[in-house]
């Protein structure tokens, strides 16, 4: 392992520690909620239906 590899390993370890402690409950790390996921898929379906409507007009 050369110095660059060692630096990167240290940096990675630092980042993982921060993510696991300070940022653990941060909103930026939240998983996508079921409601957001359903809304996203629902909007996609509506847009597809809109496309079909354009075709039918």
């Amino acid at each position: 392992m050369d110095s660059a590899d060692a630096n990167i390993a240290t940096e990675l370890e630092t980042r993982l520690s921060i993510i696991d402690t300070i940022e653990r409950d941060d909103p930026s790390r939240r998983e996508l909620s079921g409601a957001d996921l359903s809304l996203f898929i629902g909007v996609s379906v509506v847009i597809v239906l809109f496309g079909i409507l354009v075709l039918a007009l």
Binding site: V48, G51, I52, L55
Partner: peptide, 12 residues
């Protein structure tokens, strides 16, 4: 018209 519909459906 068909092209607009195809673009909307396909991209969505």
């Amino acid at each position: 018209q068909q092209g607009i519909a195809a673009m909307i459906i396909g991209n969505a």
